[in-house]
Design a protein around this nucleic acid. Structure first.
Lengths: 201, 201
DNA sequence: TAATTGTACATTGTTAACAATTAATTGCAA
DNA sequence: TTGCAATTAATTGTTAACAATGTACAATTA
């Protein structure tokens, strides 16, 4: 059964803005005007401000007192490299926690997410593909370490994914994810870790 | 010369609440009432809400829609261990960036922060000691990687420091920090990294 | 009694007006 | 024209009232 989770107004606005930033529709340094955003989403500035604070803490925006929020610049190569290492450490930790400790239902759910990735890839919906990619990793990170681990992991991956171009070229992306699930299904920890490492780069 | 940075109302409120949480004055699961906080700080609920969102994203609070915010529970031992590894990775990265690339003024500033730590330790002001400890690390992390690296690092260390008891017993804490600065001053990367590793645990 | 519904209360969510700050513009003088 | 000061406009920060939601407890029913 599908969950159809109810999302608050603020979380929906945050999702849209995250998409706009990850897709590049909102370019680095683009200024976000609270009033205009409020009009766009049909709310007042209050909820907009809440979302801007959230996205700032997630690293997608930069805020200056009394001046406002704008889209962050891409990470330097050094920090991008460090972020990859941190992300690997977190996701490898997650895989270890899941060894011999994952249900068929969870594996099926991950299969379903990968199917969705395949669809988006076929239709060349690359922003949606990126979001589904993130959704996949978020799913098993949350499974392994709950909200605490997710909170540790989320800003790292979001910030990394700004202006991320690999996804447009890679035909193997979907398969990489199938390999991860296969390894988890076989409870083959070593294979799972190496699959994760191949996927995160 | 001392900086005496101007802090916004919201940042000052955030600082007080962070202290309350790190010191344990606000216990895990304690509920934070927006109206009462507003009265305590002499503001309206607006700025309070801003701060609660920030602290939630920093991992110190947990928020539920239409219910409110409460203090997070301590990390599980597994996640505490993972956080230590991540923190080491980030701070070791910072040290590498700083090798042969740090000014006398910066070193002097770090000395001054350690002097402040010593004072707090002598007076048994343990919450202030913890905050100064964090200030030290934040200083050189920011020096090495700017705002981006700081944003990556900050939530990890804050969440770790909840209910952190080592500081009450350790007489060597201040010295550990002197060793770090000494190593940086000598541009001895290996020594700096091993000093950092000894300090982060 | 146990479960359920209904109601009153407390708390968070949202809004719009107002205050404070910053950015942009204008006018003036050298 | 250029540089600067004063003024104006645009934007964010704050506030207080109101709406919507969730919680606790009493009343009701099986």
């Amino acid at each position: 059964m599908k969950s159809n989770k109810i999302l608050s107004v603020r979380e929906q606005i945050a999702d849209v803005l995250r998409s706009d930033i990850i897709s590049g529709e909102l370019e680095p340094n683009a200024k976000l005007n609270e009033q205009k955003l409020a009009e766009r989403f049909g709310t007042s500035r209050g909820p907009i401000r809440d979302v801007l604070i959230k996205l700032t803490k997630e690293g997608l925006l930069v805020s200056k007192d009394n001046v406002g929020s704008s889209v962050s610049s891409p990470l330097t190569p050094e920090l991008q490299k460090l972020s990859i290492e941190i992300r690997r450490k977190i996701e490898e930790h997650a895989v270890k926690q899941l060894e011999n400790n994952i249900s068929e239902a969870d594996l099926a759910q991950m299969d379903a997410i990968i199917d969705k990735m395949q669809e988006h890839f076929d239709k060349e919906e690359f922003t949606e593909l990126t979001k589904t990619d993130i959704e996949f990793h978020k799913y098993f990170v949350g499974l392994a370490g709950g909200e605490d681990l997710t909170n540790l992991w989320y800003p790292v991956v979001l910030r990394m994914r700004m202006n991320y171009q690999r996804i447009r070229n890679s035909q193997t992306l979907v398969d990489e994810h199938r390999h991860i699930v296969d390894a988890l299904r076989k409870n083959d920890l070593k294979l799972a870790i190496s699959s994760i490492r191949k996927n995160i780069k």
